[in-house]
Amino acid sequence: MKLSELQVGQEAVVVRVRGDAFLKRRLCDMGIIKGEKVKVEHVAPLGDPIEVVVKNTRLSLRRSEADQIEVEVGGE
């Protein structure tokens, strides 16, 4: 499933990151890589962007970017 499909408070593990080189590199640099735990912390009042916690860091991602991140719930 996609990171953008997670509910607020839900945790998951990153399976794969898609997107163009820039987006991918950015996400990698911020620690969104395969095997990393991510958690959706907040959703903006208007539904976009979302706040994701990864590696003890809070990141704001637009839904279109979160769409590119494939995650798995409950799987380690």
Partner: peptide, 10 residues
């Protein structure tokens, strides 16, 4: 548009 990946610092 550049991706909107922004840190929400403590």
């Amino acid at each position: 548009a550049p991706p909107f990946i922004m840190e929400l610092p403590p």
